[in-house]
Simulated scan of single mutants.
Amino acid sequence: MTDDRTFTPAVLTAVDRDAAADLLAEVFFDNPGHTFIYPDVASRREQLRWLMHTNLGAQFAVGRSFAEKDARGDIAAMGFWHAPGTPKATREQLAQFGFLDMAARHGQAAFMRMIQSVEELEKRRADRLDGRQSWYLNNMVVKPAYQGTGLGTRVLRQQLEQVVDPSGYPASLTTQKPQNVTFYQRLGFRVTDDRPVGPAANSFPNWIMIYG
C-alpha cells in the first residue's frame, strides 16, 4: 500500500503547471486578497484558477521553485523564490505572460482590483525593506490534506537555511491570513506592516513580514 506521506523534494517545471494552478486555486479560494479581486463566489474558482495558471507562467520565468511531492507524485507543498535584484515585470512582460487578457476575461473592475492591490503591496514591501534587496517568497502553499503535519515548517526551514541564510540577504513576504502570520513567526519572520490594503470600505487584511 502506498504511503502518501512519503515526500520527495522536487523542482517544478511547466509539466506541473496545471496541477500547481489547481492547488493554488484550492488553497487561495478564501484568501482575503483573492476574494477582494474576485468577490463572486460562484465564479471565483474558475477565475482564480486562470489567474494562478497565468501567474505560474511568470513564476517559471522569473522565479525559483521548490516543492515536495507525495508518493503518488502529487504536489504536497510548493513555493517560489524571487532572487534579490529580480526586476519588476514590465508591461510588455505582463502582456507576454497573459495578464492583460484578464480584463476581457473577468472584467475591467477585477483587473483593476488586481493591479491596484499588487502595486500597493509591492510599494509597502519595498518601503519596509528600506532600499534593501531581498528574497521574495511567493505562492508558498501546502496541500490541505497535509496542513498541520509539519510539512510546511520543514520545507520552509530548509529553504531558509539553504537559500536565504548563506546569501546574506533578508527574505520578505506578504500574507493575508492571521494563522499564516503565526506560522511564519515561528520560522523567524517578523511583522513590519499590518495595515489593511485597498479602499477603506472594501479593504482586506495584510501583513508584510521580513526574515533576517
Rank of each mutant, 00 (worst) to 15 (best):
L137M: 05
L137N: 08
Y169C: 07
R154P: 09
S172F: 01
Y136M: 03
L173M: 12
P178F: 06
T149Y: 00
N139L: 12
S172M: 02
A145Q: 12
L160S: 12
G152I: 03
R157Q: 14
R190F: 07
A201P: 00
Y169F: 14
Q147F: 03
G152Q: 07
K177M: 13
T149S: 15
S134R: 00
A200Y: 11
F183Q: 09
A201L: 11
Q179I: 02
W135V: 00
R154S: 14
V163T: 15
D165Q: 13
G168E: 01
V142I: 06
A201W: 11
S172L: 00
Y146M: 07
Q179S: 12
S172G: 11
G150T: 06
L137I: 08
P170N: 09
W135L: 01
D193Q: 10
K177T: 14
G152K: 01
R195G: 10
P178E: 15
Y136Q: 09
A145Y: 02
L151Q: 06
Q179C: 03
P199L: 11
D165W: 05
Q158W: 04
Q158F: 05
G168H: 02
A171V: 07
A145P: 03
R154K: 08
R154F: 01
T174W: 02
L156T: 13
T149V: 03
R154E: 13
P199Q: 11
T175W: 00
V164L: 01
